[in-house]
């Protein structure tokens, strides 16, 4: 049952990250492999404020802002110029990989290679449904629930959310309907970047100790969760994150925790082989 508790925590963080990741992919058509590097940079900015005395939960705001602004800037100044040149999509993927390496190792050059941790009290422990969860973990679960509800509300009930889904489904038709898709895409980078920054900071809080390269393999988890749910399907991302989070943590109870990403990778390969459009996706998505 304790593995289930760990799995739930991993799933919560992964859900926020994957929803942002898949939203970026669906609306902007960019497979942003630099996502993990933006996550960890956001975590370090939040950590910087925490180190200087700010409450760890308040520093989340700075993680969110950095993730949002940096993601928007990466799209504006790196991805968009490449996309305008009508290069093959693989080119943008390689560019994203380059941005990821620069972001991660650039951060390492600045903060060094040592492990750091937030100064935050885990709070008292609660015994819920056979799981032992700290107050901090319950707050993380609550944040995750609120964020996912907000994302659902955004996509389903707001004009912007509907425009995002329309742009994702058919950008040309959306433009013919009067939707300013470039503005929608920019806003999507801001929102998905905010989710990326939040996920990164919560990831660091949940992990306990972290360093500049801690999120480097996280992209495997993100890809597995996204492909499991269906590329570009935000609700599929939530399902994929829950499944991958639980699967990796429960498997860690039986095999070495070091192989968690391997489990995610096996799921990813399985999905790509048998159902590349995911559980929630359609063949057209593929």
């Amino acid at each position: 049952m304790s593995s289930f508790g760990f799995g739930l925590m991993t799933a919560a963080v992964l859900a926020i990250a994957t929803v942002g990741f898949t939203m970026q992919f669906a609306v902007t058509n960019v497979l942003n492999l630099a996502y993990g590097s933006v996550m960890i940079n956001s975590a370090f900015v939040a950590y910087y404020f925490n180190k200087h005395g700010m409450n760890a939960w308040i520093t989340l705001i700075f993680g969110v802002i950095l993730g949002s602004v940096v993601s928007w800037a990466i799209n504006k100044f790196v991805f968009t110029p490449f996309q305008r040149r009508n290069l093959a999509p693989i080119t943008v993927v390689i560019v994203a990989l380059g941005v990821d390496l620069i972001g991660t190792f650039g951060l390492q050059a600045i903060v060094g290679g040592g492990y750091v941790s937030f100064s935050v009290s885990p709070g008292r422990e609660f015994h819920i449904l056979g799981m032992f969860l700290s107050g901090m973990q319950l707050i993380i679960l609550a944040i995750c629930a609120v964020v996912l509800i907000l994302v659902h509300w955004l996509l389903k009930y707001t004009r912007l959310g509907k425009a995002m889904r329309a742009t994702s489904a058919n950008a040309n038709l959306a433009r013919n309907s009067g939707v300013k898709t470039q503005r929608v895409i920019s806003t999507t980078w801001l929102i998905s970047g905010a989710l990326c920054g939040l996920a990164g900071t919560i990831f660091a809080l949940n992990t306990g100790v972290f360093e500049a390269t801690s999120a480097q393999l996280y992209i495997v988890m993100l890809l597995a969760a996204m492909f499991l749910g269906g590329p570009g399907e935000p609700y599929g991302a939530m399902f994929g994150a829950l499944t991958i989070g639980l699967a990796t943590e429960i498997s860690a109870a039986y095999i070495s925790p070091q192989y968690k990403e391997v489990v995610a990778f096996v799921v990813l390969l399985g999905m790509l082989t048998f159902r590349p459009y995911g559980i929630f996706g359609s063949e057209k998505t593929n």
Partner: peptide, 29 residues
């Protein structure tokens, strides 16, 4: 999007609706 504001409605031959959106959401867009 500018042409649309001038009162021109265009129905393409294929991909003429947003498949993942409901009928009501298509009309809203």
């Amino acid at each position: 999007e500018k042409v649309a504001t001038l009162g021109v409605g265009y129905v393409p031959q294929i991909d003429d609706v947003f498949p993942p959106l409901t009928v009501k959401e298509n009309l809203e867009i």
